[in-house]
Design a protein around this nucleic acid. Structure first.
Lengths: 207, 207, 207, 207
DNA sequence: AATGAATGAGCGTTCATTCAT
DNA sequence: AATGAATGAACGCTCATTCAT
């Protein structure tokens, strides 16, 4: 368990360094200095600089998934709306609560090399597939309009989330709080995918 | 002008090399070899490897902007819809017709270093601002619902476009053609932002 | 004595590892793993990786010497011939029966560093001196022709043995068995050194 | 041709360094320092530390071969004897005139790794094969006795040469001059392989 | 006596950049 | 304007050795 602690110590140091300097600019020297350990110790716990990076990535996806609760067919429209609100807010909060990890996933991992890009694509692909399946459930329930391609739209939604999180972290979004962000994202997304009869229903509410 | 030609020759060679290998994996050696010039010559036209990269980026934005025609208040709803369709398709086509540049903008530029990321953020920020202003025009015209934050939604839209283009280029989107992509993106986006009364109108059409 | 056992355990493990990977490619990690002990334990019994190596070398010479029985002046020519045959075969057998040690002595130990080379030279030097002294006895007995330089010839003989053993172990000597090897080496060597009157004698026998 | 000079400059520096410290102990740093060039320059001319080493090896074999003139069936026994004397002396001189290269070939190359050992084995194997073929010619001419295995004896001869050269370079052979060395080696070798009737002939002469 | 986590000097190699020609 | 040989700082990584437990 001592060893597990040391591993985490390195992981956390690497997380900070990667977030500060980016994967490429970050040296193993930087990481070991940040962790306060010797160079060799680093390689006792990770086979390469890239391995830490992958480990960090592997930490993140479960964190996201854990925040998402599937909607079920038994729920009423308003209940579903609330559930989605929780899910969306949950995901955004994970990103915003872990800015270093978010930074990694959104920014650093891209363009390293073919193998690496695939690892990252995998990560997002899983998110997209998850979203796509939710859309398909929504279609079966008659909530989501039948004329969309769920894969294309799932991709668009994940892209929207990524960009919002990234810009929220980097730009002056100061006048926008998390709830505004969630509400806007959700109403944009849902109105974008819901059957227009449902929207009229919800729209009436919202006004 | 002779000198301008030489500069372009290097630029084009670099574009091919960056797209093929990514920014990091690409060497100055690769570029000068691809361009068929001597190492030293490269530095006569660009102060650094990074400078070529920035120059390439500077080529791309005007290309995108040139494809977008502003909608005006005089146009009818259907005319506007068609105009937006043209704009969206235009933008996607620029990306897909210039896969090397697209690859650069979507992938390689990211995570290099702080200064570089800012340059890239600038690029996207301009796209977002442009989109935001279009949404505001739409609001004034009563097309876009007034309860959204145009900046947040503009960010989401650009994110959606980025992700779609990227995945379209990298994943097996084979069963999806460009028109399907445009139609889905557009109907998702527009239904997402339009006032629900307008949607009912258009929705009626679409069914 | 417990401690002596542990030392031998390490020695044997090291012998296997060195033979398998060569001195340079072999790590202390490999040795301790092969021995099934902890890294630190290794250094309780040997001050360095090189020290095990030297200990291994020190095991080998007595093994060789034990196989050699000096010829005496009382023996007849044919008895001497048989004795030399036994000696030669004995030496070759020690090499071939201890391929790991042979590999070490012939191959791995060489070129490490100046100090090490000297240690190895010492080893061979002893063999050469031993051979030289035998030649001198032979001279006194009138068996070995008086016009040779016994040191030079002793050196040549040891070199011949080394090369034969080495190549026998590494090359496709498959069609040559140990007895052929011994017979050839011996008849070559002895005819090389014997007085030609003796050779005529033996030659007559051999035909 | 300038480039050829630089290559040779590095080659010579490496030769000195390898001879002084051995392949393993020699660093690229040592080589570039000895050559008076920058680290990077080294890699402009050789892809690796090992590559210089192989280049050095490749220089040596032709040097040896060039000194050897084949004996022909038309020559009388004494002429052949003289020719072999020239060959042997020539080979020994190449070794002794190029002590650094000799050192490399005899000492440093061994035990590096499997691939390397093979390269070296190849080198010696060629020498052995060449010698074996000479023995076979001698057999056909009735000079070499028919009861030996030419491959085994060729191996023994090469081993003898290697050891003599090596020890001549390292040990106190001071009282032995090159001619003594050649004469001893030759008379040992030839008497070892010649038919005893020939030896009687030559032996008579020699007395 | 035994452990094994920790150390850190040192390695071979790369590559953006410079500069004499 | 063009060349390309030369540069050298910097990198990721290894591994024999140490030492607190």
């Amino acid at each position: 368990m001592k060893s597990e602690q040391r591993r985490n110590q390195i992981l956390e140091a690497a997380e900070r360094v990667f977030a500060r300097k980016g994967f490429h600019a970050a040296n193993v020297s930087d990481i070991v200095q940040e962790a306060g350990i010797a160079r060799g110790t680093f390689y006792l716990y990770f086979v390469s600089k890239r391995a830490v990076f992958e480990a960090l990535l592997d930490k993140f996806f479960p964190l996201l998934v854990s925040k998402v609760k599937a909607v079920s067919q038994d729920q009423g429209v308003e209940e579903i709306w609330e559930q989605l609100r929780q899910n969306t807010k949950g995901i955004l909060k994970v990103f915003l609560d872990n800015p270093e990890l978010a930074q990694l996933v959104l920014n650093e991992a891209v363009g390293l090399d073919k193998g690496f890009d695939e690892k990252l694509m995998d990560f997002y692909h899983k998110l997209i597939i998850y979203t796509k399946e939710s859309l398909e459930v929504g279609m079966e329930m008659g909530l989501v309009r039948p004329d969309i391609n769920p894969f294309v739209i799932a991709t668009a939604i994940i892209g929207a989330v990524k960009e919002l999180v990234y810009d929220f972290m980097h730009l002056d979004f100061k006048e926008v709080d998390l709830d505004t962000l969630v509400d806007n994202l959700l109403s944009f997304t849902l109105q974008g995918v819901f059957d227009h009869r449902i929207i009229s229903l919800l729209g009436g509410e919202q006004d």
